[in-house]
Nucleic acid binder design. Structure first.
Length: 491
RNA sequence: GGCCCGAUGGUCAAGUGGUCAAGACGGGGGCCUCUCACGCCCCAAUCGGGGGUUCGACUCCCCCUCGGGUCACCA
C-alpha cells in the first residue's frame, strides 16, 4: 500500500462529533451484559447528539454462529437503539463488518513493523495451556531478527504472525472515564499477536485500527479489557493517533461469583421477552444496573435515559442481576399502560387459558392489569373460565367473611332467583343486587360475595371479585355454576 | 501466582470530611377491601477489618481480607 492509500483512509474519518460504536462478535445471543453495554454506548452518543455505529467483529472464523447477526439487529431495533451507521445502513467509513475490511489491517500492521513497533514472528503456535503460570513473555527469538533474515524466511514461505513490540521497560498509563488513570508496568504486557497466521487481525488490533478509522471518540466496552488497554495506548501512540476516551463497564453478575452467562442458563434479552417481560422494562432495568442517575426516579423511557445519561456515574463494581426487581419494574410498566394497550398485549396470553370466545378478553384484561407482574403469569390465573374446577365444599369456609358451608348454601339458594331475575347483566347491576341483598339480610357484603365468587370460579383466589367474574361468565353460565354449588353443598 | 480494578443493608444504590447514612426491590407489620392484587402507612436491615491523617472520617492514605478481571494466533 502506498502513502496515498493511507491518506485516503485518514481523509474519510469524520471529525467534530461524538461517535460511539457497539461492536459485538456474532458468536451467540444478546445477553444482558451486552445489551447494557450497547445501551450505554447508544446513550453516550445520543446524549451528545453524536453518532452511534454498529460494527460486526467476526474475525474469529471458528466461532461464527448462524443467525447471530440477525439477533443483534432485532434486539437493537426492539430496544430503540437505532444506529446511524452499520452493515445494513452503510455510512462514510464502511464497510462495517471486519471480514469485509480484511485488507485494511495488514498494511497498518506492516507500517507498524516499519516503525519498529511490531515484528514478524515465525515461532510455532504455542500449545494451549503450556505457558500459564509464571510465564512472562520470555524473549521471543523473532523480536530482534534483522530485516534481511525476515525477508528470507518470508520468501521461503514460512508461516508467520505479526506481534506488537512492547517496550521492556517503563510503564504505560491510560485514562479511563470511570476508573481514572490506570498504570501498568510494560514488562507485564505481552507481545500480543496483531495479525494471525490466517492473515486476519486479532480482535485487539482490528479494534484499534477500526476505532481510529471510524472516528470513534468513546470506546465503551466491558471491564475485561481494562488490563489490555495499556497495549492499546501503545498502539495508538506508535501510529501517532489520537487516543479515544475509554469507558470500561464492570460486568453484570448472576451471583457474587459468576457473570451472567448462557452456560448457566441465565436469560438473554429474548428469553426475558419470552417470559413476558416488556422491552421498555428490560431496558429501563438494565440501564439502572450499574448506573444511577443520582435522584430517586427509577422509571425512564429510552429517550429520557439518553437525556439523563452521564457516563461518569457508571458504577465501578459488578452488579448482580436481580430478576425480582426487574419483575417489579415490569409490573410498574404494565400498570402504567393504557387499558387498550394492556388488553392488546395480554390478549394472546389470555387466550392461552380462555378459549371460549364468549368470554370477553378485554374485560378479563381489565381485571388483570393491576395484578400482573409479567404477561406469562396470566394463563394460570384464568384456568377456571373454560372449565369449573372440581373444588371442595370446604372452600366456602372463610373466617373473615364469616362464611361456612351452611351459610353459603343458604345465601346461594336465596341469591339464585334474584340473579335469574336481574333485568340487566352487568357489573353495576350485579353489585346493586348483591349489596342490596346483604343489606336486606343484614349481613356483611363479604358474606354474600364470598360464596358466589367461589361458586362462579371454584377457587379461593381469583383476579377480580364476584361481580366481575359473574359478569364475564354471563347469566346462564353463572346460574349453572350456582346450581353445581348447591348440589355440592347439599351433600 | 504476577499484574490491573473494585468494596455502603440480602439486591440495585445516593452520598464525595461534620447527615439521626437517601431512595427502590425484597422481607415484616398495619390500613383499605366482594378473594387476590393495587394503593397507602409503619418497621427491621448497611459503611468488611486494622492502622494512620484530621478538631472531626463512609468519605483521604497505607496494610490485610474479600470480590472481579487479565495473563490465547477468542472476542
Amino acid at each position: 500500500m502506498n502513502e496515498t492509500w493511507f491518506e485516503e483512509m485518514e481523509a474519510r474519518i469524520p471529525t467534530g462529533e461524538v461517535r460511539t460504536r457497539f461492536a459485538p462478535s456474532p458468536t451467540g445471543y444478546m445477553h444482558v451484559g451486552n445489551l447494557r453495554t450497547a445501551l450505554y454506548t447508544w446513550c453516550i452518543a445520543r446524549h451528545a447528539g453524536g453518532k452511534f455505529l454498529l460494527r460486526i467483529e467476526d474475525t474469529d472464523q471458528g466461532r461464527l454462529v448462524e443467525g447471530a447477526v440477525d439477533v443483534i439487529y432485532k434486539t437493537l431495533a426492539d430496544c430503540g437503539l437505532d444506529h446511524d451507521e452499520g452493515p445494513d445502513v452503510g455510512g462514510p467509513v464502511g464497510p462495517y463488518v471486519q471480514t469485509e475490511r480484511r485488507d485494511t489491517y495488514l498494511p497498518y500492521a506492516r507500517r507498524l513493523v516499519e516503525l519498529g513497533h511490531a515484528y514478524y514472528c515465525f515461532c510455532e503456535k504455542s500449545a494451549s495451556g503450556e505457558d500459564s503460570g509464571d510465564f512472562t513473555h520470555a524473549d521471543d527469538p523473532c523480536r530482534e531478527l534483522d530485516a534481511a533474515e525476515v525477508q528470507r524466511r518470508l520468501d521461503a514461505g514460512e508461516p508467520w504472525v505479526i506481534r506488537q513490540k512492547i517496550p521492556r521497560t517503563g510503564t504505560t498509563t491510560f485514562h479511563d472515564e470511570i476508573y481514572g488513570d490506570v498504570t501498568a508496568p510494560n514488562v507485564d504486557l505481552d507481545d500480543q499477536v496483531l495479525i494471525k497466521r490466517d492473515g486476519l487481525p486479532t480482535y485487539n488490533f482490528a479494534n484499534v485500527v477500526d476505532d481510529h478509522l471510524m472516528g470513534i471518540t468513546h470506546v465503551v466496552r466491558g471491564s475485561e479489557y481494562l488490563s489490555s488497554a495499556p497495549k492499546y495506548n501503545l498502539l495508538y501512540e506508535a501510529f501517532g493517533w489520537e487516543i479515544p476516551r475509554y469507558v470500561h463497564c464492570s460486568p453484570v453478575m448472576r451471583d457474587e461469583h459468576n457473570k451472567m452467562s448462557k452456560r448457566h442458563g441465565d436469560p438473554s434479552y429474548e428469553d426475558l421477552v419470552a417470559q413476558g417481560y416488556l422491552t421498555e422494562a428490560i431496558v429501563n432495568y438494565v440501564a439502572l444496573l450499574g448506573w444511577s442517575p443520582g435522584g430517586e426516579r427509577e422509571i425512564y423511557s429510552i429517550g429520557e435515559l439518553a437525556e439523563a445519561f452521564d457516563m461518569k456515574r457508571i458504577s465501578k463494581s459488578p452488579a448482580i442481576f436481580d430478576i425480582g426487581k426487574l419483575t417489579w419494574l415490569n409490573a410498574e410498566y404494565i400498570k402504567a399502560m393504557t387499558p387498550e394497550a394492556f388488553a392488546a398485549a395480554a390478549e394472546p396470553w389470555i387466550r392461552r387459558a380462555v378459549t371460549n370466545s364468549a368470554y370477553d378478553a378485554g374485560r378479563i384484561a381489565a381485571l388483570l392489569q393491576q395484578r400482573t407482574d409479567k404477561l406469562s403469569d396470566i394463563p394460570e390465573k384464568l384456568d377456571f373460565f373454560d372449565t369449573l374446577p372440581d373444588y371442595s365444599p370446604e372452600l366456602y369456609v372463610h373466617k373473615k367473611s364469616k362464611c361456612d358451608e351452611e351459610k353459603a348454601r343458604d345465601i346461594l339458594r336465596k341469591l339464585r332467583p334474584r340473579l335469574e331475575a336481574l333485568p340487566r347483566w352487568d357489573n353495576e347491576t350485579l353489585l346493586g343486587c348483591l349489596t342490596g341483598a346483604a343489606a336486606e339480610w343484614e349481613v356483611k357484603n363479604a358474606l354474600v360475595m364470598w360464596p358466589l365468587r367461589i361458586a362462579a370460579a371454584g377457587r379461593a383466589v381469583t383476579p377480580g371479585g364476584a361481580t366481575e367474574i359473574c359478569e364475564i361468565l354471563g347469566r346462564e353460565e353463572t346460574l349453572r355454576r350456582v346450581d353445581i354449588a348447591l348440589e355440592k353443598l347439599a351433600k
